[in-house]
Amino acid sequence: MKKSIKKYIPNISNMLEEPAVVYHITPKYSKAETLVKDFTYKYFKKILNKGAFTLGEWADMLFMSERTLHRYAKDDGGFNGLQIERILLLEILIDMGNEMFGKEGFKTWLQSKPFSLNGDIAKNKLNTHNGIQEIIDTLGRIQHGISA
């Protein structure tokens, strides 16, 4: 005698169905500007002129030598993808800092030891992606009046 095998049919009514929220974020750069091949020293120079860091400090944050940056300046050379990502993240940081403190005030603040960074100098955190993001978050908290 054969046993009949019942097929399992999932209960579809238990599935969660909520409308998706679509957030519209205006990108800072157009697609043409963010292409790796098009991000040359000319674009980097615009960010460099906003202040806050010397060319040597940029070289340290981008894990390259200052001489390489000078060579890029001479040849209008391009950066690689990871360097571009770091440059754009640092640009966000610079824009926030300059808006809050002014150019010179932001340079001074970077040398401070905010309480939220556990006594570390803010500028020392800028060698890693997480450190940069931590400084951006700290500036965001200051903007919103949360003690930092």
Rank of each mutant, 00 (worst) to 15 (best):
M1F: 10
M1D: 09
K2Y: 04
K2S: 03
K2R: 04
K3T: 12
K6F: 08
K7C: 02
Y8C: 06
I9H: 12
P10G: 12
I12H: 07
I12W: 13
S13F: 11
L16W: 08
A20N: 13
V21A: 06
V21T: 06
V21M: 08
V22N: 07
Y23K: 06
Y23V: 07
I25P: 00
P27Q: 07
K28F: 01
S30W: 02
E33W: 05
E33D: 14
L35G: 08
K37W: 04
D38A: 09
D38F: 14
F39G: 03
T40N: 13
Y41H: 09
Y41E: 04
Y43K: 05
F44K: 03
K45I: 08
K45W: 09
K46V: 09
I47R: 02
N49Q: 13
N49Y: 12
G51T: 06
A52S: 15
F53Q: 01
F53S: 01
F53K: 08
T54N: 10
T54W: 03
L55K: 13
L55D: 06
E57I: 11
W58C: 09
W58S: 09
A59N: 10
D60C: 11
L62F: 05
L62H: 03
S65V: 04
S65R: 03
E66M: 09
R67E: 12
T68Y: 03
L69W: 01
L69E: 00
L69I: 03
R71A: 14
R71G: 07
Y72W: 15
Y72H: 15
A73T: 04
G77R: 09
F79W: 08
N80S: 12
G81Q: 14
G81P: 02
G81A: 07
Q83E: 04
R86H: 06
I87C: 00
I87P: 00
L88R: 01
L89V: 08
L90C: 07
E91S: 12
E91Y: 10
I92S: 09
L93S: 05
I94L: 04
I94T: 09
M96A: 14
M96S: 04
M96H: 00
M96G: 08
M96E: 13
N98C: 15
N98A: 15
M100V: 01
G102R: 06
G102Q: 10
K103A: 13
E104L: 13
K107N: 02
L110E: 04
Q111C: 10
S112Y: 00
S112V: 07
S116H: 03
S116Q: 10
G119P: 07
G119R: 08
G119E: 13
G119F: 14
G119L: 12
D120T: 15
I121V: 12
I121L: 06
N124Q: 15
K125H: 08
L126M: 11
N127H: 15
N127K: 11
N127M: 14
T128C: 12
T128N: 10
H129T: 13
Q133T: 13
Q133I: 13
I135S: 02
I135M: 06
I135R: 01
I136T: 01
D137K: 10
D137F: 11
T138N: 02
R141Q: 11
R141H: 04
I142M: 08
Q143P: 06
H144S: 14
I146R: 14
S147M: 10
A148K: 01
A148D: 09
